[in-house]
Design a binder for these strands. Structure first.
Lengths: 205, 205
DNA sequence: TAGATTGTTAATCGATTAACAATC
DNA sequence: TAGATTGTTAATCGATTAACAATC
């Protein structure tokens, strides 16, 4: 195990490896190599070996990596060997889609509360959830110790909602609002903005 | 103007600048500096100047950048000074949310068709759209010259649908399915997978 | 003119690749 | 043993930062 600081760019690739390995495991494959994994995820074998070796010696010369073992290790490293409670703020179309999304299960997350500031939405049911008043964010999240939130509110209110989440102890925000958030550097943000992602490809067309 | 190859990493930042500048323009601001823009997007002033200067001299010493002018230039560079037709494949919850998403307008995109392979969904209406049979992808997209698609199908069918899209002439795919796609290198893919994005943050918690 | 800010160069820093000894 | 593949080192490549002359 290595105590040095691991670059963000490596941490960013681990979930991709994890996803590919999970898929191989689901297909009954027991073992893989950096070569094979690299072909699946579109990354060089050398880089995969280098990335993984930051955290220990998880492979065997001659045979590669045990998928089950590497999965365990990656989950441990990424701290998704547990289930994180996630708050969702914004009960619009995107919020609904996330509330119903099946893809959080088995990947370390579960939504525990949905908030909206629109009083006409408060009390509405989304599957088994009841939309709560956004004003209750501080009390609800602090007491529950929720550290992760997903933000699906309009751009105009995203910053103020983010501020409130951070005040409530949230340290990781998955932001669907099309705006850059200003946060202290002990808070992580990931951005999902379909238009921005599309605009990253049109240059090449 | 510079004819050298521009690194992907720079192209990836331009939509973020574009989004921030658009926001400033909406707020009636006429001029900005690399310093100010950098504070908005969390990137150093030096890097912003370097990125922008790859494409020309768009600023003025002493006063910075005209926001309207820089917006024009960035839209031109990214080729979003036009409206791209986009196909959506997968009429589940996420597909519905994207179909109704207002954030494509004014950012260079419009959805022109929605497909699903589930025959019970074919013919259903989503707002003004009618879900079409996925088998019609080749004929519909080729004749319309659609180059961009968004993929919101299950992981199990994502690769085969991607193959079909590519055969139909699609060159850019925004993939919401939680799987790495194998595509020829003249086809671009961007990935949106909420669990993967969340897993990029838990390491730091 | 004085102050501000660009565009660009050179220096630094960091990431990727290639190569191979070690070893399963 | 022979073949395969890791983990790691050194070399290469690329990106970021600092600094400043140019100039609005």
């Amino acid at each position: 195990m290595n105590a040095e600081k691991i670059p963000d760019i490596i941490i960013g690739r681990l979930p991709v490896y994890l996803r590919a390995l999970q898929r191989m495991a689901d297909n009954g494959i027991k073992t893989t190599s950096s070569q094979e994994l690299g072909e699946h995820v579109g990354i060089s074998a050398a880089q995969i070996r280098k990335d993984i070796s930051q955290f220990g010696e998880f492979g065997k010369q001659g045979t590669g990596y045990s998928i089950a073992y590497l999965l365990d290790k990656l989950r441990e490293i990424l701290k998704v060997d547990r289930i994180w409670d996630v708050a969702l703020v914004g009960a619009g179309d995107m919020g609904h889609a996330l509330a119903r999304y099946q893809g959080f299960t088995n990947r370390g997350f579960r939504i525990v509360a949905i908030f909206d500031s629109d009083k006409t939405k408060v009390g509405q049911k989304i599957d088994e959830f009841v939309v709560e008043d956004a004003e209750k964010i501080p009390e609800r999240l602090k007491s529950a110790g929720v550290k992760i939130a997903m933000l699906t509110v309009p751009a105009t209110s995203a910053q103020s909602v983010a501020d409130k989440l951070i005040q409530a102890g949230v340290k990781a925000i998955l932001n669907y609002a099309p705006i850059s958030l200003n946060v202290p550097n002990n808070v992580k943000v990931q951005y999902i903005d379909p238009s921005t992602h599309l605009q990253r490809m049109t240059y090449y067309l």
